Simulated assay, not measured.
Amino acid sequence: MTTALHRAIVRQGHRVRVELRPTPRPVGGELLLAPQTAGLCGTDLQMLRGLRGDPAPVIGHEGAALVVSAGPGADPALAPGTRVVVNPTHPEDPSFLLGHHLDGLLQERTLIPETAVRAGLVMPLPGPLAPGDLAALLEPLATVHYAFSVLKRARIRTLLVFGDGTVGHLAVRAAGRVLGPGVRTVHVHHTDAGRAWSEARAHRADRLLTAADDPYALRAAVGDGPVAVLLATPRDATLRCLETALRAVPGELTVDLLGGLPSDAGSPLLPGVELAAVRAANCGGRPSPARVAHAVTDTGRRIGLFGHRGVADGHLRDAARELAAAPERYRDLVTHVAGLDEAAEIMGHLALHRDRVWRGRRLVKLAVRVAADRTRPTVAA
């Protein structure tokens, strides 16, 4: 008897390497997937750097896969050969958080438990996705669609985006198509290098700033009218950027706490507001419509405040349709493409360095081509 093996990128501390792992067999209602393309995101970087305690040794929650085999009782719509996307956040079962609590997509085979399959978190992709490696953008673009579904209700005139990672760039590029051409965009970058990268892009915000710019420059860039702030920031920067926005924008304001937050996060500018609780009030697309808190600042101004963990299935479908309809608007955000071996090398570098540069180019999104060879290794049982 032999045991099938597959290759996986495995992390242990700051060490990242490709290893052989036993390939599981799906049982009642489970699915075994063959990831094709997987993306590396900001929360993945936080795990690699030891800033999060998530236990999964194999990370990765963005991308597309093929169904390889299904356990008895699985949905017939998810037959072997079906190309799927996995919603990584279960709205009711916190034990399912793909690539965080259980092994993710940066391996040649990924087992999806029955609880996630039954909840509809594995979805056939609707029609052909745009060619190339854009599947790495599916889940982050879905989070932008979720944010915009709430911000549409605020009838904003300006979208102010903090963060120059993948989600920040996606928000800037999708704003005109989703929120309408009349919405102007202001993009605040973490560094001058990030701003310089954006300046060289065909699809960029109406105004480009950095976090070091004078607050008056931000106030002038935002202008008048209702403003929405999207905080596409790592958890160690979200609170600082929130306070910057509260000070710079004097008028009608709605804030999306999309970035992570410490569990005890609070601000003297929002007395009595438990920010982590506001963000956690929306999970996996539920409830619908999303809850928006009406907070009061230290100066007595009322603002809208919300956040979200995960997305609804519909947001993933919207993202797939958007990437298929306008691939050239997003393609250059996939700055690096690698197989498993080079991807492990890149991840090891990023675990130890914060420069976001690989082989002389700024890394925005890494798309990992995971697809396994048809001949897989086996060992004697």
Rank of each mutant, 00 (worst) to 15 (best):
A196P: 05
R173K: 07
L137E: 04
R247E: 11
R309C: 08
Y146L: 13
H145P: 00
E30F: 02
R286N: 10
P140F: 06
A290N: 02
R153L: 10
G251V: 03
R354H: 15
S267V: 10
A248M: 11
R361F: 09
R173N: 02
G99S: 02
R118E: 06
G194Q: 03
V296G: 13
T335C: 04
T23G: 01
E199V: 12
A381V: 15
T375P: 04
P22W: 11
E328L: 14
D224N: 08
A367P: 06
Q46F: 12
V222A: 01
D341I: 12
V249P: 04
G28M: 07
V311A: 05
V86N: 03
A281S: 14
V368C: 11
L5S: 01
P88N: 04
P80Q: 06
D213T: 09
R109N: 10
R369E: 13
L231I: 01
L305N: 02
P131C: 06
R331V: 09
V183E: 00
G176E: 03
A196S: 12
V370I: 11
R356E: 13
A38F: 04
L230M: 12
L121I: 02
R184N: 05
L151M: 15
V278I: 14
L125Y: 01
T115K: 14
G310P: 00
D133I: 08
P131E: 08
L45E: 10
A205F: 05
L51D: 15
A154V: 14
P262T: 12
D213N: 08
A175C: 14
A280C: 14
G300P: 04
A221P: 07
G180N: 13
Y146D: 07
V150S: 02
D332T: 09
